[in-house]
């Protein structure tokens, strides 16, 4: 077990956003969290990353309680909807950012970043500034920036929602490949049912602050509240 979330509760202005959320994620597993906009998916990820403080509950990584730790001490990387590349740094420096923070030797940084650029197909763009590359390439750089520090857990907050259909599909394929190559453990938040099924090894559904964890993808698809049945029926009847 890599991560264990116990009884997380969060209210904004007295209104509960997350109520008694508990879940477990195994090593090298991607857990999909499906839910409508504004249901608290991002808040849950921000609490795990340490950006938001929960009202109650605890988070354990490899059995260690990290609830009181600052975000920079947790080694959990959060990927936003937008790539949010640092505009003052080029592609190479954006990817190298996490390594520079750790004060790793220059030679090692150059070597590791070069390898990462190659694996993400960005070698030709290493000297470009963020405004000179496409949306898909930006998201790849954001992946590289997160993966290079080898975090035990990556939190993906609808990372492909701003991309066009084709690029989105390419990024989904890339993520699946990268997840295997880099042994990623991740929480993947999305409001797109197809994406949730494609990306996740296991499925969960967040509604009205409550998280439902499914034992299998079939259970998820059979459940009326997820909307999977409606989606299948739509495509069958078209």
């Amino acid at each position: 077990m890599l991560i264990e979330i116990n009884h997380i509760t969060k209210c904004f202005s007295g209104k509960p956003v997350l109520s008694d959320i508990s879940l477990k994620v195994d090593m090298y597993e991607t857990l999909s969290i499906l839910g409508k906009s504004g249901c608290g998916k991002s808040t849950l990820l921000k609490i795990i990353a340490g950006i938001e403080k929960p009202d109650e509950g605890s988070i354990l990584v490899k059995g260690i309680d990290i609830s009181k730790q600052e975000p920079h001490e947790r080694n959990i990387v959060y990927l936003f909807q937008e790539a949010l590349l640092f505009p003052n740094l080029n592609v190479f420096e954006n990817i190298a950012f996490g390594l520079r923070i750790k004060k790793i030797e220059k030679k090692v940084i150059t070597q590791q970043v070069s390898v990462m650029l190659e694996r993400l197909g960005l070698t030709d763009h290493s000297k470009k500034m963020p405004h000179q590359i496409s949306g898909g390439q930006k998201q790849r750089v954001a992946f590289g920036r997160a993966l290079i520090i080898n975090p035990p857990l990556i939190l993906l907050d609808e990372p492909f929602s701003n991309l066009d259909t084709e690029t989105r599909s390419q990024m989904q394929d890339l993520y699946k490949k990268v997840a295997i190559d880099f042994h990623i453990t991740a929480l993947f938040v999305t409001h797109d049912i197809k994406e949730a099924l494609l990306m996740g090894d296991r499925m969960t559904y967040l509604q009205d602050g409550k998280l439902k964890v499914y034992d299998s993808k079939q259970d998820f698809m059979n459940d009326e509240i997820t909307g999977a049945k409606k989606e299948i029926s739509f495509w069958n009847n078209i």
Partner: peptide
């Protein structure tokens, strides 16, 4: 957006 930039630095290990 600016807050998100700072959050990214934090989650990457920066103070």
């Amino acid at each position: 957006r600016v807050k998100a930039f700072a959050d990214i630095v934090n989650t990457l290990g920066g103070t």
